[in-house]
């Protein structure tokens, strides 16, 4: 059987809200190391990779590897019924066709359970190579959200260029053009408000803003976001979810013909 308990149930609520518009369905792969998900959007332009470690849960048991096919819109409907302070327990028998979600209020005076019907999903698993990136930028997740939201109102695509001057986001559209540059800045006292730019070599890539904007739905999960860039490769937009794990979004670039 599979059983996973998390005291901070709001994390699961936020995770599903971050994913549900990008990927309608996918498999939760559970094993004794934790829970993971890999899913592409419907146009196969981006990929979401979620990893939640076994030791990040308050209790985790998985006797047998399973792929649980989840419809994220439906999971979201159920998780909306959980209180923000609730402890959430996920449970499934081996080869079950449903996932049970149990919500416990902190005062222990309200306990509810919901069964989510599971789906059979054939998913293509992609191998993501470990690699070094030309530029890695860590910035406040709220800053990333603001940049992609602002630029989405001006244009459809963004040129992201990392140089020793900083990281520049440029777009253009019917109304005109926009450029936003962030510099390496470790002045703020709070680490989560700092911007770190680790540049091995200058790099410039073009991406569809619609997806970058969609990734920012994960902002409530983490105070910082990491962008990793290498020429002619997908950008990685990564949110660390505390001690529990991470959610990574990979977006294929637009490349000149």
């Amino acid at each position: 059987m599979f059983e996973a308990r998390i005291t901070q149930g709001s994390v699961l609520k936020k995770l599903v809200e971050a994913l549900k518009e990008l990927v309608t369905e996918g498999n939760f792969d559970v094993s004794n190391t934790g829970l993971s998900l890999q899913a592409m959007d419907s146009s196969h332009v981006c990929l979401v990779s979620l990893t939640l470690r076994e030791d990040g849960f308050d209790h985790f048991r998985c006797d047998r590897n399973m792929a649980m096919g989840i419809h994220f819109g439906n999971l979201s409907k159920i998780l909306k019924c959980a209180g923000n302070e609730d402890t959430i327990t996920l449970k499934a028998e081996d080869n079950a066709d449903q996932l049970t979600l149990m919500f416990e209020a902190p005062s222990q005076d309200r306990i509810s359970d919901f069964d989510l019907k599971l789906m059979s999903i054939e998913s293509e698993h992609l191998g993501i190579p470990d690699q070094d990136y030309s530029a890695e930028v860590k910035l406040p997740s709220s800053e990333y959200q603001r940049i992609v939201r602002d630029l989405t109102s001006i244009g459809d695509t963004v040129l992201i260029s990392a140089t020793k001057e900083g990281i520049k986001f440029s777009t253009s559209g019917d109304v005109g053009t926009a450029n936003i540059t962030l510099r390496h800045n470790t002045t703020p006292e709070k680490p989560e408000e700092q911007t770190f730019i680790d540049l091995k070599e200058p790099v410039a890539l073009t991406f569809a803003l619609r997806y970058l904007n969609n990734f920012s739905k994960a902002t409530p999960l983490a105070p910082q976001v990491k962008l990793s860039l290498t020429k002619d490769l997908p950008i990685v937009v990564e949110y660390q979810v505390g001690e529990l794990g991470s959610v990574r979004f990979y977006l294929a670039p637009k490349i000149d013909d």
Partner: peptide
């Protein structure tokens, strides 16, 4: 003119 690539063009089957 630039073209939007598919993500599978970058990552192999794993």
């Amino acid at each position: 003119k630039s073209t939007q690539r598919k993500i599978s063009a970058f990552f192999g089957n794993g």
